[in-house]
């Protein structure tokens, strides 16, 4: 039974998968539009967690070139690339969130509510 130590050692991956599922569930099942947007953000963040945890090495150094000479023996860098990717991803997530929020404001102006089931009801009267 070496599965359990493996799972414990790699827990960030499992957390990210669980978060991904929570995010999808929240987005698709919640009736409040705000909660749906929160769900979108949870999905995005779970993927960023996956990226970042894939880059990390326990005991690794920050990927900055040493000022004098070379690396001390036995030291190693963590992978800097996923951090750059996640930064891009965060910007994308931010703009999607801002855009979605602006649509929600407009929906509130039209319907006076941000609950999707109440919006459906209002539409069914018309």
């Amino acid at each position: 039974m070496d599965v359990i130590p493996k799972v414990i050692h790699n827990y960030p991956y499992f957390v990210s998968v669980v978060l991904f599922c929570i995010g999808i569930y929240t987005t698709l099942s919640q009736t409040s539009l705000m909660k749906k947007i929160i769900g979108i953000n949870i999905i995005g963040n779970s993927i960023f967690l996956l990226f970042i945890s894939s880059a990390n090495i326990r005991g690794g150094m920050a990927p900055i070139a040493p000022q004098h000479g070379t690396l001390p023996p036995g030291a190693f860098y963590v992978n800097p690339l996923p951090a750059a990717l996640v930064l891009t991803g965060i910007v994308v997530g931010l703009s999607v969130t801002a855009f979605a929020l602006s649509i929600v404001v407009r929906m509130y102006e039209y319907y006076g509510t941000i609950e999707s089931n109440e919006i459906l009801e209002i539409r069914s009267w018309e």
Partner: peptide
């Protein structure tokens, strides 16, 4: 407005899946 919100929501879920695959 309503259609755009639905589109945005589902498109973002879709790109979430794509990004997970890329990761």
């Amino acid at each position: 407005t309503e259609a755009a919100f639905k589109y945005l929501l589902l498109a973002t879920v879709g790109s979430g899946f794509v990004l997970f695959g890329i990761a």
